[in-house]
């Protein structure tokens, strides 16, 4: 199963580092990253493989939310099926 992590917020040092660190800690593999800074807004979409993760997916979502709050970012961690359902026939 894959999860899509989107990160939106003011650009600052170490966003990708912190998020990657959290992924590595729970054995989540990063498959793809698209990232842009528009003016000083940071936008990133990260596709991750969570099939071998060593904790519950919902706990991972909680940790990402918490990290987002700490860094002043909005982080959405969502199951890939939502995007497949809405945008693929």
């Amino acid at each position: 199963m894959k999860a899509v992590i989107t990160v939106i917020g003011k650009d600052t040092v170490g966003i990708i580092a912190k998020i990657s660190e959290l992924c590595a800690k729970v054995n989540v593999n990063i498959v793809d990253i698209t990232q842009k800074v528009m003016d000083d807004m940071f936008v990133m979409i990260m596709i991750t493989d969570v099939s071998a993760m060593n904790e519950k997916f919902t706990d991972f979502i909680d940790k990402m939310d918490l990290l987002g709050k700490e860094m002043g970012l909005v982080i959405h961690t969502m199951h890939e099926d939502l995007f497949n359902a809405m945008h693929k026939i």
Binding site: D32, I47, E80, F83, H87
Partner: peptide, 16 residues
């Protein structure tokens, strides 16, 4: 695999 615009569109629909 995933289209960036599609992902952002979905997030925008939910949040805004």
């Amino acid at each position: 695999m995933f289209d960036t615009d599609n992902i952002l569109e979905t997030i925008h629909m939910i949040t805004n």
